[in-house]
């Protein structure tokens, strides 16, 4: 009972007003937006899983281990060399871009501040985010591949160029969120600025830095254009980072999917599912890793 009997003026029932109507309207709109975002996501996952799973499990472990058929019209596995190539190129790019990006962000936020040089670097980072990935590929082709030939490392360089601005700007955002009072607490205990950054600021920002870096890595793992010029098109295993043509899952998806042979197209679906699974696993592993740093309350 929300209406008082003893006091007729006391009525706590919800009243319909423009404000409550507006609230309802907005809730509906937000619900619709969630659906609009979920539809393509689910559709993509459904398409990849439904068409890729069959290919993948038709020859279960071989799909991940066997070499890529030289003659693409022949049916059969596998994607082994492409998995190794993707791990090499993405791993190399991560090793280059993540430390460099974090150091850059530390400089920009902790030391550069609003100085002219820092402003220029920050502006260039924004510009770099907007460079099309194929242009990065061409840049690496001209500066690296023309001199040293195809290799997974060339691909790693191109991917690192793409990841760097993302890592820098996301890390800088995270550093900005570290409260001043934590820095002051550290200074007040006699810690130097560098010690404060290493022991207080970076650990406090770590979960955010990991998330930002993961996003960059996941994006890089799926990039095709920058690898086209730098990696080459091998079909056999090449575990070497610096020498010989290599391949990658994204390159295999591209070349097989554009092929006119059904067998090749099937393999492209399998490779797509493999890439998705790989990225997903990477995210889960990194989450577990960061969760271990977090403490029990």
């Amino acid at each position: 009972m929300s209406q008082s009997v003893l006091h007729p003026g006391l009525d706590l029932r919800r009243k319909r007003s423009w404000r409550s109507t507006k609230s309802l309207l907005m809730s509906v709109l937000m619900g619709l937006s969630v659906v609009a975002v979920l539809i393509p996501l689910i559709a993509v996952m459904y398409a990849v899983i439904s068409r890729g799973a069959g290919v993948m499990f038709a020859s279960f472990p071989e799909f991940f281990t066997a070499e890529i058929p030289m003659i693409s019209r022949k049916a059969g596995p596998g994607m082994g060399p492409a998995i190794v190539g993707t791990l090499l190129a993405t791993g190399g790019a991560t090793l280059i871009a993540v430390p460099l990006g974090i150091l850059g962000a530390v400089y920009l936020h902790e030391y550069g501040g609003t100085t002219k040089f820092a402003s220029i670097v920050r502006f260039m980072t924004t510009v770099m985010t907007g460079v099309p990935s194929i242009v990065m590929g061409l840049f690496i082709y001209l500066t690296w591949t023309m001199k040293f030939g195809y290799s997974a490392f060339g691909g790693a360089l191109a991917l690192a160029c793409l990841m760097l601005p993302v890592v820098i700007s996301s890390t800088e955002q995270m550093l900005r969120l570290v409260p001043t009072n934590l820095r002051e607490a550290s200074y007040a205990l006699g810690a130097s600025k560098s010690r404060t950054i290493v022991s207080v600021v970076l650990p406090a920002a770590l979960p955010g830095i990991v998330s930002g870096s993961l996003l960059a890595i996941a994006r890089a793992a799926g990039e095709t254009a920058p690898l086209l010029f730098a990696v080459g098109a091998a079909t056999a295993y090449n575990p070497h980072l610096f020498t010989e043509a290599n391949t990658a899952l994204s390159l295999q998806i591209f070349s097989n999917a554009t092929s006119s042979f059904v067998a090749a197209q099937e393999r492209a679906w399998g490779a797509a599912l493999t890439l998705m699974t790989l990225t997903f696993m990477l995210t889960v592993i990194a989450r577990i890793f960061t969760a271990r740093f977090a403490l029990k309350r």
Partner: peptide, 16 residues
Amino acid sequence: RRRIGMVFQKPNPFPK
């Protein structure tokens, strides 16, 4: 600061 410590207005323990 090593010799002159400070306690702040808002408790500010490190997230450790």
